[in-house]
Structures are given as C-alpha cells and as structure tokens.
Design a protein around this nucleic acid. Structure first.
Lengths: 334, 334
DNA sequence: TATTTTAAAGTTACCGATAACTCATTATAC
DNA sequence: GTATAATGAGTTATCGGTAACTTTAAAATA
C-alpha cells in the first residue's frame, strides 16, 4: 500500500508536507501542492484511516446497533441513520443484536475496541443496562433509540408507545369491541410495558375491566404464540379484537388465526404498532400505529453528532416522535 | 483510555509481556499471566484495534455493500452476512449504495481507507466496473453478489435469473396467458438482462412472439412506471399477465393497478422475482421466484473468508443459488 | 546593509500495538 | 564444574499518520 512516505519521496518533499496537503493545513505553496497532488493521483494514494485514528484519537466511525434487521421498522431506521452518517461524514459500523443480550455484549466489545466516536443504540431491553454502562465507563457517547433502559440517563429518541397504544385500543373500543386481547413483547422491554399501560388505560377510561387472561407475552422478534393463542380463543368469552404490540407479532398472530380458519377482520379484528412498508404498499390491510422509523435513525445521528461535537449540549435530551394511527381494514366494527 | 503501557506499569512488567498475554504468544509464566490478566480486568482494558490493525496490516473488518436496504431480499442477505461475519470473527462495515454509482464510489473509498480485509459487494450495475477495478487495484479481496459485472472476473454468488424468469413465465403460459408484460429493471444490471432473456426464451419456446410494446424498463429500487403502465393497459390488445423483475417493482405495479380499479389476479395476473418475507407471511398472495437471500450473505462471507485466508483457493468460483417457484394467488388461469 | 518578519518546508516525537531480537536466569548434559 | 539448552522477560524498531516545533530562505523594514 502506498503511504505518505512514498508520495513524499517521489515528490521530493517531506512526509509532513504531504500530510499538510492532504489535510489542507499549514502553509504550502501552490506549486508544491500541485506537485504533491499529482504524485498522489499517480500512485493512487488512499489515506490509512487506522493510522489517522490512532494519532487523532477519533475514527469518524459511528456504530448502529439494532435488534432485528429483518424488521422493516429497524430497516427504515437504519436507512435514516445511514443517510445521516453520510451527511455528517461518518462511516457506519453495523450491528444486529437479535434481541439477545449476549450478542449485544459482543457488539459492545467490538465497538469499544474499534474506538468508534459514538453509538446509536437500540437496546434489547432492561438488561442492556450493563452494556450501556460499559460504553459510558469508556466515555463513548451514545444515543438510545426506541426503548428506554431504567438506570440510564442519556440522549434518547423514543416513540409514544403509551399514547399510540391508547389510540389503537381506543379505536377498537370505538368500533364496539370490549374483549380486546394484547399480544405483547417481553416485559423487560420498556415499550412493551408502556404499550401495556396504554392498553390498560384505554380500557380503564371506558370502564372495561382488565382481564389478564387476555394478555400474552412474547418476544418482539420471533413469534411462536400458538399454544397461548389457542387458550385465548377457547375461552368461554373469547376476544373479538387483538392488539399486537408490534408488526412481527401481528403477522404471527394473523397467520396463526388464518391457519385456524379464523378470518381477519370478519371473525376477529387485529391492530398493531409499527407499519409493514412494502407489505402495506402491496395491500393496505393492517391498521397500525405507524412510527416514523426513518426519523428515528436520522435524528438519532443528529443528536449523536451534536453530542460528539458540541460541548454545550444540554444533558439528556429526550425526543418523542409521535406515531400515526393509520386506519386500514384489519379491524372492523363488532 | 487504558493502554498496554498502563497495564504494564501497574503489573510491573513490560508492555511486550502484556501483549503476549493478550495474544497468547511467546513464553509467559502462569504467575505473570495471572497478574497481568488481573490488572487488565481492574483497569477495564480494551485493546485498540486501530493500533493493532496498523502493525498487523489487517483489520478483521469486512465490508458489506448492498444496493437497497429497504428491500427484504437484501435485508435477509445482510442477516446472513452478519451471522457469517460473526462466526468467522469479523466486524461488518455496512454500506448501502441505493443503486447509485456515485454513492457506491464513496463507499469504495471509505472501504479502501478503512483497509478492510475484504468486501461483499452487490454491484449497482455494469458501471460498478470502475469501483470494482479500484478495489482490485488495491488488492482488496471481494466477492460479487447477485449481479455479474462484465469485465470483472471474481468469486461470485448469483441467482438463476434466467432460469427463474423462465419458470415464472412458463407458469403464466401454462395458465393460458399469451399477452405477458415484463416490468424489468434497468438493462445495465445483469439480472435484468437475464430475466429478460428468460422471459424471451419462455415465450419463444411456446411460439409466442416477443412484443417489445409489452416491456417496461424501470429502476429496481424506486418504481414510478405509472405513465408506461397506462400505455401498456390502453393497448388494443393489453396484457393479461405481468412479470415484474423484482419484488419492489411488483408491489409498485400492483399498487398502480389497484389505483385504477384493476383487480389482481381477477383482471390481471402478476408474478415476480424475490419474495416479500413478512408480507408473504401476513398474506401469502404474490406468486414469486424466491431466492435464498440469507444464503447469499452467509455463503458470500464464507467464500470471502476462504479467499482471504486460503492461498490455494481456485481462481474465480461461481456459485449459483437456485430460486424456488412459490405459487400463491396473484396469478390465475386466463 | 543589517535586522526583522514571514512564508514554506522539514524534524522529531508520539498515538498503541506487535515482530524480531536480545538478555538474564535456571535447568540439563557431559 | 563448565558448556549448552530452555525458559521467561525485556529492548528496539516499526506500522502510517499528525502535532508542535524548528529551520531555511526570501521579502520587508529600518
């Protein structure tokens, strides 16, 4: 590989002069600059960013850690983060924790040893605390996305889980539903707790008693609630509507229902958090509380870069991005 | 940040000894090893991989360059690549070219200056030649995925575009269709050319004349064929079926058709390349030639790592992963 | 003409690791 | 008891850049 020393030699200048030309620092005569640039082109010089990072103590790399790359929500978020990173001149080191704390820890170690300048972090759940504390202990700036982690104060971009859940359940109640089931994520994830709260609150406001037998807890990422769903449906008084806490769960639920010959929405209504993008474009079916996923990523990067560059940024900034109730056809009046 | 020198000092040994303990090289007494390890834990030492890369001349980073992160095909591929990278102990530097040669070039420059050990490269199209030649000029091993680039010989993982297209069109012909339109990607992309060939061949085999007025060319990533579709449908003898060259195009086409009140498959049948994952799980509607996207990524990494590590790997290995015809309900007999 | 200023370039040390070699000890062989 | 080998650890140079300072020579000023 060509180094500044090769350039220096061929251009008959010192390595420092080459460095100055590259970075546009110091005083360089127009003639020398041209000469050096010419040699750089001739030799196809590409700066070694490892060497640069070593001395500058910064890498111009940001890390994006998400929990499910096959979920369109995170995909759009990644797209936003990518565009943002590019705009600010950072590279993006990418990680996918699969909602798995151990995998997440591995990525944190990678991130640390890469000496990235900052991390955009979508935590797997409450137990991400340790991993986040590790980043903090090493003074790596981070912005938490999507899910709050009790015990960690930091910049944060979240959705309105509680509010969005309320809106969805309100909508179902408005359609006349009273027996509304909740297929929720794991309770060690903040959004699952908040969506539960929103669900409970919406019911309470309408004087509908909360029935714990109508609630299933699942993993946000891989749905396998078949048995629980069975129980749900074979109750004496089965639900007429289901609120799934995210898109993946909704798809799983609907598939299971159809496997049983139960039609949506004719026999049972289904709504959920997060949209399905391509799927919704193909067939505007699922009624959802859609979150502005791209914004999550783009704004996340913005906050992160401000935090990295800016000294005078307020302590822990919280941004709440509202979700939008998109009414389609997966829920109907009772 | 803690360095090996801090460890060395506190443990009363030389930095070299610490390095040897970290890498398990050289001769170290059990006692010293324990002492050093203890100090490393106490000080929360994390190795600086930039420094390491500089001297070792390798980064343990692979780069994944795809063309559309919102397309489920590439998403699954990324998932496979990620798992593969992790398995082999590499980090993944992620790039998304958006089918844009300029963006692709920027990423190639990033990749080069990061001194990644190898690149998994899904080219935007034929004009990616320059970018690939640049990688080659700098001796960065790469594996091309999904699309061949004329002028470049390298390890490659592709689908069976021609064969898959033939199968899809055969299927349509079998249903009685004779007027079959093709909504294709841009012709500077190899898969678009091959899918066109497969389409033409299937027609020819059945003695159906090729009608160029039934063919629309689009960008694989953002569909906006409204005007062309209009012309297509207002022909004296409009198509009874449409073969879309990928999933994104299919979704666009179907949306446009529905906007016009044309029903799929009642009024017109639609099939395409690549599946829609979540969408198909939600509603098994679209009849597709599904490619094993995850395999693309996983095998890609495998070939790449073999290329990096192995000296005795044959020159340009081509892997063709077959697609599977998944018959659902978006096409019906005429 | 002597002195100061300024522009342009070069020197040196360092970022944090590792390779290759050297240097003490201690153990083993003759 | 001396020569040799084996063990455990340390020295030095280097990877490819950049910061901070120094040097050189020409231009400006007195």
């Amino acid at each position: 590989m060509v180094t500044i020393y090769d350039i220096a030699q061929k251009a008959n200048v010192s390595a420092m002069t080459v460095s100055k030309v590259i970075n546009n620092t110091g005083r360089i005569s127009e003639e020398t600059r041209r000469k050096v640039k010419k040699v750089m082109e001739e030799l196809n010089y590409i700066p070694n960013s490892n060497a640069r990072s070593l001395v500058l103590q910064q890498t111009q790399i940001l890390s994006l850690l998400i929990t499910d790359i096959t979920n369109p929500f995170y995909t759009s978020l990644a797209r936003g983060a990518e565009d943002g990173a590019k705009q600010y001149g950072y590279r993006l080191l990418f990680g996918n924790s699969d909602e798995d704390y151990a995998k997440e820890k591995d990525y944190v170690d990678m991130i640390l040893s890469t000496r990235v300048d900052g991390v955009l972090f979508a935590p797997a759940g409450d137990l991400s605390l340790k991993n986040l504390e590790k980043l903090r202990a090493h003074n790596i700036p981070f912005v938490i996305m999507d899910r709050a982690v009790p015990g960690i104060e930091s910049d944060m971009i979240c959705g309105d889980s509680k509010e969005g859940a309320r809106k969805l359940v309100d909508y179902l109640i408005g359609l006349g539903h009273r027996r509304i089931a909740l297929v929720n994520g794991s309770l060690d994830v903040s959004t699952a707790r908040l969506r539960y709260e929103g669900y409970a609150e919406a019911l309470a406001l309408q004087g509908i008693p909360l029935d714990e037998t109508l609630i299933i807890h699942q993993n946000y990422r891989d749905y396998h609630a078949d048995d629980h769903l069975e129980q749900l449906l074979e109750q004496p008084s089965p639900p007429t509507a289901i609120f799934a806490a995210n898109n993946v769960l909704a798809v799983g639920v609907i598939r299971d229902l159809r496997d049983r010959g139960i039609r949506v929405p004719e026999d049972i209504s289904v709504v959920c958090f997060d949209d399905l993008d391509l799927s919704s474009a193909l067939d505007p079916f699922l009624t959802v509380a859609a979150q502005p996923a791209y914004q999550f990523g783009a704004m996340g990067i913005q906050l992160l870069v401000e935090r990295i560059r800016g000294s005078s940024v307020p302590d822990s900034r919280k941004v709440i991005l509202p979700s939008e109730l998109v009414i389609r056809s997966s829920a109907k009046p009772i």
